[in-house]
Nucleic acid binder design. Structure first.
Length: 616
RNA sequence: CGGAGUAUAGCUCAGCUUGGUAGAGCGCUGCCUUCGGGAGGCAGAGGUCGUAGGUUCGAAUCCUGCUACUCCGACCA
């Protein structure tokens, strides 16, 4: 179509659609700063929908504050509108991600959000993925899904476009809306159904090249999260069925995080607790079982149904007690049940347990009735002695001596138990969560536990998709070889929530300068009366904007208290108050978002002062 | 999917037990006053009480179905 025709068409359509409403001309034109953010910048022209009260359905701080600050509004469960203020922050996150991805040599593309079922059938995930995959049917009754991830599409792209080893390695990324039909969306944008993700996919001939790019992406992620101003940690993750060492998660540290991560106080080691190996004993203890010193006794413990009660009522050291948990066994195990034992002060790691071949996946605890039918006693009286089912004990349980356990008789426990004397030593496995103080699996230092929000994940996929979808290139010998793949994700929308989860106080949001909706808020005092104030505020605003700062001029007709409160709630790092009082002394008032007190700064030092205080 | 709960004004909630025709605070509109930490006064707008049915002379209130949302659990890069 000729451009002139197109113009005419567009013009006509526009004229039809918008015949009446002509938006008022802005007094200052919209423009782009050096950061590329187009700015409405005058508060009176911006939708600043702040709430004084906390909406009742928001559970975590970041969600509460994002609603109160007018960053987001909920449409329905798991779906959110990004309001002007929130979008500014989101765009800044995207921008940093994009800049660093580009710097790493990755190429940006944009794939469709809606994907044909055929590709997913080819990879086998149409069946595997389950109800989290939102499936839709078009008018021709063809099946599609709304993409939760893009391995299939990108592998399809690669098999069409990549033919030769000479085109490799290649890394493609996009920043795009995904949809996962989460069973239970929660915490606002932290676990929503629709979200924005940066996902990258690299293609290689051979492992070495993959590992090289993987390392580049690891370094790129460190740069990204550092620039975002977040307290984060790369954490070893498990590759599951694919195997290998090639997976890291990036976690933002926050108490409300959904994941527990174990890290060493003596090295860089960090792992998701789900996957962190638990060594049998602390380093300063002998990893051998102490000799038996007590006789096995049968004790009446009618009121001791829990470990805590047992310890309380019978003076047992908690590390001399064991928990016996009965779960459904994998098919083929006689009786259908299996017992798992961990020390009284430890917790079963359900992921590890589920991976045991004898245990049914998903892990299912046996009901009280099932246990009574099989054992003759209920929860609280279970133990290994005479138990007629397979038993698997944790490594640390194997090292116990003189310990107490339920006797499989209602209201009775055995004390003074010893393996290989009173009962045979069962199969041993690592089935517990590591706890603070455990030795680090890398042999250096001890484990400490922190909570984290997973904001990034990098992964060496290998040839899983390329083989399933027949994506090959010719190598130097003219032979077709399957592509090795890596994939690298960052939850962009989740990053915003995580940043707020990490940065907040009574006043509201405290964002790093790199991603705050504005860097500087200018609050003129009494601007409607003092021409001097309003003109000065206007001038500073122009100067700072020209200098590349992202500035909000709060020209709203509100009382100062409202503006101060809003500025804090929004998390704007720098605040300048322009008032007659200060101007009489040749000063502006400055307050950093984290500062307890405001400081007066001489008018002519403003620029240097801001440069010094700015973290960008 | 299992368990629990909620649904009344834009937001936070009261009213429901014991049925009698709709309330508060905040927010919003106008006017006045005020202007350095979410001011004050006056006047207003705004609700088919989630929805469908039932009981009743009469239902926000009692009963039943449905829907939406929230929380706990199982699930999950």
């Amino acid at each position: 179509m000729r451009l002139s025709l197109l113009r005419q068409y567009v013009f006509t359509r526009r004229a039809e659609a918008l015949p009446v409403h002509v938006p008022p001309r802005r007094s200052v034109p919209i423009k782009a700063t050096s950061r590329g953010i187009a700015e409405p910048m005058r508060a009176s022209q911006l939708l600043i929908s702040t709430l004084k009260e906390t909406p009742s359905d928001a559970e975590v701080v970041s969600h509460q504050l994002m609603l109160r600050a007018g960053f987001i509004r909920r449409l329905t469960s798991g779906l959110y509108t990004w309001m002007p203020l929130g979008l500014r922050t989101l765009r800044k996150v995207e921008r940093i991600v994009r800049e660093e991805m580009d710097r790493s040599g990755a190429q940006e593309i944009l794939m469709p959000a809606v994907q044909p079922a055929e590709l997913w059938q080819e990879s086998g995930r149409w069946e595997q993925y389950g109800p989290e995959l939102l499936r839709v049917v078009d008018r021709h009754q063809r099946d599609y899904c709304v993409g939760p991830t893009h391995e299939e599409v990108v592998t399809d792209l690669a098999r069409r476009e990549l033919n030769s080893y000479k085109q490799l390695p290649a890394n493609f990324y996009q920043i795009q809306t995904k949809f996962r039909d989460e069973i239970r969306p929660r915490f606002g944008v932290m676990r929503s159904r629709e979200f924005i993700m940066k996902d990258a996919y690299s293609f290689h001939l051979g492992e070495a090249s993959l590992k090289e790019t993987y390392q580049v992406m690891y370094d790129t992620y460190v740069r990204i999260f550092t620039r975002l101003g977040l307290d984060f940690r790369p954490v070893i993750a498990d590759n599951g069925s694919i195997g290998g060492e090639g997976s890291h998660e990036f976690h933002v540290l926050a108490d409300s995080g959904e994941d527990a991560i174990a890290f060493s106080t003596g090295s860089d080691f960090a792992a998701n607790i789900e996957k962190c190996a638990a060594l049998p004993a602390p380093l300063d203890e002998t990893p051998e079982r102490a000799a038996a010193t007590q006789e096995m006794t049968l004790v009446d413990t009618p009121n001791a149904k829990t470990i805590a009660a047992l310890v309380e009522q019978h003076g047992l050291d908690i590390v001399k007690t064991v928990k016996t948990l009965i779960v459904k066994a994998a098919e083929g195990v006689e009786g259908g049940l299996i017992a798992l034992m961990v020390r009284g002060d430890h917790e079963l790691n359900e992921i590890k347990a589920e991976h045991l071949p004898q245990v049914a996946a998903p892990l299912t605890m046996a009901s009280d009735e099932e246990v009574r039918a099989a054992v003759g006693a209920g929860f609280g009286s279970l133990g290994p002695v005479g138990l007629k089912m397979p038993i698997i004990i944790d490594r640390s349980v194997a090292l116990m001596s003189d310990f107490g356990a339920g006797a499989n008789i209602e209201g009775k426990h055995h004390f003074g138990l010893n393996w290989e004397r009173d009962l045979p030593l069962p199969e041993i496995a690592d089935i517990r969560n590591v706890v603070a103080g455990d030795p680090s699996p890398d042999g250096q230092g001890v484990i400490d536990i922190a909570r984290g929000i997973e904001v990034g994940h990098i992964f060496q996929l290998g040839t899983k998709y390329s083989e399933a979808m027949n994506a090959t290139v010719l190598d130097e010998n003219g032979k077709a070889q399957p592509l090795s793949m890596g994939c690298y994700g960052i939850g962009v929308t989740r990053v915003v929530a995580a940043a707020i989860e990490q940065g907040n106080d009574k006043g509201g949001i405290v964002l790093p300068e790199a991603i705050a909706p504005f860097q500087v808020a200018i609050v003129p005092m009494n601007a409607h009366k003092s021409v001097r104030v309003s003109e000065t505020a206007e001038r500073i605003y122009q100067e700072l904007t020209a200098a590349g700062y992202d500035v909000l001029l709060d020209d709203r007709d509100l009382r100062p208290g409202n503006k101060f409160a809003d500025g804090e709630l929004l998390g704007i790092p720098h605040r300048l108050v322009i008032g007659d009082r200060g101007l009489d002394n040749g000063e502006y008032e400055y307050k950093g978002r984290r500062d307890a007190e405001a400081t007066m700064i001489p008018v002519d030092t403003l620029m240097e002062f801001l440069v010094e205080r700015s973290t960008l």
